[in-house]
Nucleic acid binder design. Sequence first.
DNA 1: TTGACTAAGTTAGGACCGCTTACATATGTA
DNA 2: TACATATGTAAGCGGTCCTAACTTAGTCAA
Lengths: 208, 208
Amino acid sequence: MNGPNDLIEIRKKYHHGDLREHLLDAVRQLIEQYGPDGFSIAQACRHAGVSTAAPYKHFKDRHEIMRHVAHQALERMRDGMQRAADAYPAGSPERIMALGNVYVTFAKTEPGMFVVMFSLTTDHAQDEDLMTSGKACFDIVIGVVADHMGLARQSPEVAARAYALWCFVHGHSFLTLDGKASKIQTPLDETTIMALVGRALVPDQIAV
Amino acid sequence: MNGPNDLIEIRKKYHHGDLREHLLDAVRQLIEQYGPDGFSIAQACRHAGVSTAAPYKHFKDRHEIMRHVAHQALERMRDGMQRAADAYPAGSPERIMALGNVYVTFAKTEPGMFVVMFSLTTDHAQDEDLMTSGKACFDIVIGVVADHMGLARQSPEVAARAYALWCFVHGHSFLTLDGKASKIQTPLDETTIMALVGRALVPDQIAV
DNA sequence: TTGACTAAGTTAGGACCGCTTACATATGTA
DNA sequence: TACATATGTAAGCGGTCCTAACTTAGTCAA
């Protein structure tokens, strides 16, 4: 067939070769382009040059695809966080700033993925891979905060401070994405925000 | 007609009477029950006992309905925040705690609405009513923080601190909803969290 | 009271989507 | 080479959003 529909890529062979990964990538692109609710699996199939039934040889349903996409994105962000942590000496304020910066930058450059990662629409809380990835991210924060405070990773003070840091940065990322932060009449630039994070949430004189 | 389909309410008259409000309410209920992506306008029509074409006499499209639902929810939260602010004397720590508590409680009791309010799927950033409602919420925070710090509402310190507070509470609410907060191995109860908010974000010794 | 205008319903249907079933084709292995 | 399996296709069901054309009922001026 291959009529005048909007096929992006014309496949030569009957078998695709690596449809699974190609689909995940197409979905990622489409989500960034049209938003998590503005795209369709059928659209991704057209990108991959396969029929709309093909995905179901690789995935149970739409939600499973979304979970895999979210997982890949979370792993990508985890890599970024790890690299940021490795780039600065333990205990330095720049290290925490860099960590927060990865988060906010990810939200800005891949807003679609950010929303999908923290979406409640697909049942993420039940997905084991997603939760372990998320925990791995948080463990990085735990380690950095522990180094900074000079306490053990298991210390409840560290846990509380790390969680507070996560909440703050997550909230800031989300409100920025949402456009609410920009509409609010505060002349807060990114530097001020991150400075506030560094100074307000990890000073030694404030105990839990 | 009225065959054996799942009509909830049987209408007697040809005209509904107040379909517009009835639809918004049905959508709200369905979102809480099935999630923002698990419901359909058609389902809401069945609740209201009208045909699936009826909503388009009142709303442009699905997105406009979602925006109205989000707006109503935001106004409801604003009322709660205002009541919390009025319930405590200016400058008292309990006042800030109560304000944050309204936010978190709203997220917990109406998770569907919370997600819709801060959803990027429907183009909220363009909606004027939504943005003004959001700004009204933030103005309450501004006022409370200004009272607490003993500074003018227009002070940049107040703006920074209020925004930080908002970020923190929003992040905590979202992570709680997402299930990530509960899965993270931190024994942080709500009281500890809110205490951390009160102490870390609005102490006078930390300047911007 | 009547008759036109309008608001708010209806039915019918198109375009699209997710997903399933039955069938077709390629690939690896004995 | 023969068969089992993995991976594709075509066809179609039920559902969604939304539009077009029609119908009903309420309002208001003459």
